[in-house]
Structure formats: C-alpha cells, structure tokens
C-alpha cells in the first residue's frame, strides 16, 4: 500500500522535529544570521508583528530588544528599530546591542499603540556576518503578555 510511505517517514520525522531549530516558531524570539556571506553592509531584516487581545485583555504596547549572539567584533553592532503607523500613532524607536558577543540583550524599547500591527527592522553597522536574536512581546498595560504573532517580509 502506498500509504506506507508516510508510515516509513514517521520515525525520522519525529526525531528531526525534536532537533530542528526554527527561528520563527520559537516563542517570541527570532534567531537568524544577517549577511552570512559577509558582503553586505546594508543587509536588513523586516518583519510585521501583530498584537491582539489575550482573552479580553487588549495589547497596550510592543516591547523588543536585540542580542548579538556572534563572536565579538569591533565596530560591528546590531540595531533594532520598532515602529507603528496609523491610528494616529506614527512612532519609531531604536535600540542597539552595545557589546557584541557578550550574551546580553540591548536595552528594551517599546511602542505604545494598542492592538494591531507593528513593524521591526534589524540591521547592522557594517559588512560582516552577524548572528542575532530578537525578543518581541506584545503586552497589556499591566505587563501581561498578550497574543503575539510575527511574519517576515524581507531578510536580505
């Protein structure tokens, strides 16, 4: 029976699923490497984050920070911009991981615009590959985590 083909896949699928790392699916941290070939100073990541209610609790703001997870390198830092457009709230804020490779996140920044879509841009100050992690969380006014989803528009 040809459906046995699916059966044969089962065991290896479960093993691989346990080992595979997926940047997008990790809980509100996105991990990746910018400029893997080390040729693009203008390499940019661009994503949309959708914040909605958690139950009946609405989102008040999106907070985010970035961590350079690569080896230390002078004069090559990672920046993260968070911004919102519309509903009368057109606002942007930047944060930079000031020390590469120290396993510490940049200062956390936030934009307060309620439920809806926010945007993240991640970039760096020069040529060279940089691995990084972005932490992003929609939160209610009292700091409770609210529904947070992300999609990636650009990574090049």
């Amino acid at each position: 029976m040809k459906y046995k083909l699916f059966d044969k896949m089962a065991q290896s699928t479960l093993l691989i699923a346990a080992l595979t790392f997926s940047g997008l699916s990790n809980a509100h941290e996105a991990d990746a490497t910018m400029d893997p070939t080390g040729t693009s100073a203008s390499f940019t990541g661009f994503a949309v984050v959708t914040c909605t209610n958690e139950g009946n609790l609405p989102t008040s703001y999106l907070e985010a920070s970035v961590k350079d997870t690569d080896v230390p390198q002078d004069n090559l830092l990672i920046n993260l911009q968070v911004f919102h457009l519309g509903s009368g709230i057109n606002r942007a804020v930047n944060t930079t991981d000031p020390v590469s490779g120290d396993d510490q996140f940049s200062p956390t920044v936030k934009v307060e615009a309620g439920n809806g879509t926010y945007y993240l841009i991640v970039n760096k100050t020069g040529v060279g590959p940089r691995s990084f992690s972005v932490s992003y969380h929609c939160k209610a006014a009292d700091g409770t985590h609210t529904a947070t989803d992300i999609g990636v528009y650009q990574f090049d």
Binding site: Y3, F6, D7, M9, A10, T13, L24, G151, Q154
Partner: peptide, 22 residues
C-alpha cells in the same frame, strides 16, 4: 494522521501545511 508539517515561503513564513500517514 501521524505526520504533519508546515509549508513555508522563502522567508520561513507559513503558507500552508500537510498531514498524512493513516
């Protein structure tokens, strides 16, 4: 179904999924 996985675009965004096995 025993097996399942998502379908993604070039950026890793989910655009579908499949399931199968039984």
């Amino acid at each position: 179904f025993d097996l399942q996985d998502v379908k993604t675009d070039s950026q890793g965004n989910v655009i579908g999924f499949w399931a199968g096995g039984n």
